[in-house]
Design a protein around this nucleic acid. Structure first.
Length: 511
RNA sequence: AUGGGUGUAGCGCAGCCUGGUCAGCGCACUAGACUUGGAAUCUAGUGGUCGCAGGUUCGAAUCCUGCCACCCAUACCA
């Protein structure tokens, strides 16, 4: 039992924070609500970025960058948008500091205040209006990797922080159909990345009127179920219709020689995905990472007492490294080792994942907790007795089993197979938990009961309605997470209004 | 914002009611010894304007006043 990690049963929220702390993913910063993402945590974001960016490129998008500061007047141009974001904007009003008796004071008030972007539809819309002249300029398919700021009252590491990292895609199209197609395409891209790479199962759906993005015609989302039965929105894709095109005059001369407004979309995922990852897979021993994305896929831990043993064991460890990663990668790693006592060797083609030989002069037990709490999928332990038998022990982070191996069984493809096996096992485990955490109800009483007793996803026939949803939220704390794209068809009875309903929705208590 | 609570070493806390050997404990950290297949032990050390400002007093972590910050609940959280 990890002594620095509260169990999930004792206090789920504390467990979440303890896992982050033990794995050194992030830390609190001097500024309330802002977090410091530490190297181990940032490596996870880089892995997600790498996977997603490739998928964006594969679907025809390119990256660009827009400014952090946005004139307040821009925000005002789209009425719903400003209503949705005004309260949580940080505002820049001055341009400098000057010394005074009471310390530094602001000076140089700006003619027009600037907001720190909570999202970039407005600046990007402004630029699009200048860039797009003709239907030949369409579609515009851009993405930006950036930070945004939303002045949240209650913050939680990774799940809701005042500043966070994300990507925001912004596209402009000639027709409504194309925009709709794009919106759904990117929702699929998100779902594929999150399920295949993060091994987090999601439900694709549409947001109801009360939950959609301010300024969107339609918002789609992927929702994931966490271990405590709460839902987490893992990504959103918005069909903005012509709302922003109207507000920013994003128009073009069409094939018919008439001027038309563009149809735009936007879509984003954030560092919140790291929170989803933690709360989906991790256990009471700490972080568990899906092996496809884990920056360190395997740690080799030498075990020895005497100096003579050390040499033998280290030699065996190096041989194992060569078997797994190839002699070239090992030599490259050795040449850049410097004074470090962890030999990190690139594994596989991508040069993103590593196998690490832990040569630190600490006890094996310490290394055990070190790698386990960081979620490293595999550990290979080698002691003098193993060396004598040409063997080693494989420890599996997910099953926490030991497997006794001959060293000559190790190879790059052997590890690949192990990675794939664990990856699908991890996804399967999460998938099963999501299925078991989902129930169907026929009446409002049952919905109340389900949300109160077991939380989870609760599916039912329901006619979305802003007022009714508000009442249900007040009574049950549950909200409509989405109208799943996957519908059974047919018709049922709305559990709240009693009227005929064509759609099922999913209720849950959300993060 | 309203109600309740808390600010003392990097972290977690005791001390405050009853002012005076009160600058303390545990963890962490450093050095050494002894150890090493699931968080050993022993010894010696480093580290603090007791949230900030003012007041009462011979004397304040302790009492008084003001301020600030944080936490919990409610509200808010596309």
């Amino acid at each position: 039992m990890a002594k620095n990690i509260t169990t999930r049963e004792q206090d789920y929220n504390q467990w979440y924070l303890d896992v982050i702390k033990a794995a050194q993913l992030a830390d609190y910063s001097p500024v309330r609500g802002c977090m410091v993402i530490r190297p181990t945590g940032y490596a996870l974001w880089e892995a997600i970025q790498g996977d997603l960016d490739a998928r964006f490129k594969a679907t025809g998008h390119t990256n660009a960058y827009f400014p952090l500061l946005i004139p307040v007047s821009f925000l005002q141009k789209e009425a719903d948008h400003v209503d949705g974001f005004a309260m949580e904007c940080a505002v820049v009003t001055h341009s400098g500091l000057e010394a005074s008796e009471d310390g530094l004071k602001v000076k140089g008030e700006l003619a027009e205040p600037l907001v720190v972007r909570p999202t970039s539809e407005t600046v990007i819309g402004h630029m699009y209006s200048q860039w797009i002249q003709s239907y030949r300029d369409l579609p515009v398919l851009l993405n930006q990797w950036a930070n945004v700021m939303r002045w949240e009252l209650r913050t939680r590491l990774f799940l809701r922080t005042a500043e966070f990292l994300w990507q925001e895609g912004h596209t402009a199209h000639e027709t409504a159909e194309e925009a709709q197609e794009e919106t759904l395409k990117m929702l699929d891209v998100y779902a594929e990345c999150v399920e295949e790479f993060l091994a987090v199962p999601v439900i694709k759906g549409q947001k109801t009127e009360s939950e959609k993005f301010p300024g969107a015609d339609t918002t789609y989302c992927i929702e994931a179920l966490m271990q405590d039965g709460k839902a987490l929105q893992a990504g959103t894709s918005h069909n903005l219709g012509q709302n922003f095109a109207k507000a920013f005059d994003i128009g073009f001369l069409g094939r018919d020689n008439q001027r038309h407004l563009c149809w735009t979309t936007s879509w984003g995922v954030s560092t919140r995905l790291i929170g989803a990852l933690i709360m989906t897979h991790s256990d009471d021993e700490g972080l568990v990472l899906p092996p496809r994305m884990a920056p360190v896929v395997c740690a080799i831990v030498p075990i020895y007492r005497k100096e003579g043993e050390k040499e033998q064991v280290m030699e065996a460890c190096r041989n194992m490294l060569v078997s797994l990663c190839g002699i070239k990668a090992v030599e490259q790693a050795e040449s850049r080792l410097g004074n470090r006592d962890q030999l990190a060797v690139f594994f596989g083609e991508g040069h993103r994942q590593q196998v690490i030989l832990d040569m630190r002069d600490t006890k094996p037990v310490e290394k055990h907790f070190y790698w386990e709490q960081r979620g490293v999928p595999f550990r290979l332990e080698v002691g003098p007795r193993d060396v004598a038998k040409n063997a080693c022990v494989l420890k599996n982070r997910l099953s926490r089993d030991k497997e006794f191996l001959q060293q000559d069984e190790l190879s790059g493809s052997w590890l690949e197979n192990k990675i794939e096996a664990m990856q699908s096992e991890l996804f399967q485990r999460a998938q099963t938990r999501t299925e078991e955490g989902t129930c169907f109800v026929d009446s409002y009483e049952e919905l109340k009961k389900a949300l109160a007793e077991r939380s989870g996803f609760v599916r039912c026939w329901f006619n979305p309605d802003v007022d009714n949803e508000q009442k249900i939220k007040e009574e049950t704390k549950g909200t409509v997470r989405c109208i799943p794209l996957d519908q059974p068809g047919g018709e049922g009875t709305c559990i709240y209004s009693g009227e005929p309903a064509k759609q099922q929705v999913i209720f849950a208590i959300a993060y």
